[in-house]
Amino acid sequence: MEALTQLGITLMVLTVTYLVGSAIERRHFDSLRKREARLRAFPTVTFERLPEGWQVADSGLAMGSTVVSLDYFKRFLAGLRGILGGRVRSYEPLLDRARREALLRMTEGAVADGYDAIVNVRLETSRLASSRGRGKGTAGVEMLAFGTAVKLVRQP
């Protein structure tokens, strides 16, 4: 009886987190696509050096970051994956969203500050330790995108 109640509650939480999680995910992907389309013409490149012919008038650090965490449904799937092995598919869209969001935030910031491009773009990930489970658990993951934003000398 007790086990059944527990199972029922678990199933309910799974259903709710799945429905809410996938609705949020869908909206986020829509928003990402729209903003990416808007910023498409803005060059963000991974070159370490400036391309030849660019004349830089001003430069600065451009940075954007996101912190993401798992919902119960994704964590449940990943837990089962940990037993069976294989691609942890439930994490993939989450990390994809995090990367694209961080890049967008970096770019949006640079655009707002009047820069023309960002070079030497890098992505970094770090795990946030959780106070639960003696630091073994994960509170979330930070995705950081950064690069050198440049203002170019306009050719008259």
Binding site: Y18, S22, F73, F76, L77, R87, R89, S90, E92, P93, L95, D96, R99
Partner: peptide
């Protein structure tokens, strides 16, 4: 970067 498998199928 994202698998096409539906989450429910995966579950």
């Amino acid at each position: 970067n994202v698998s096409a498998t539906h989450p429910l199928r995966e579950a």
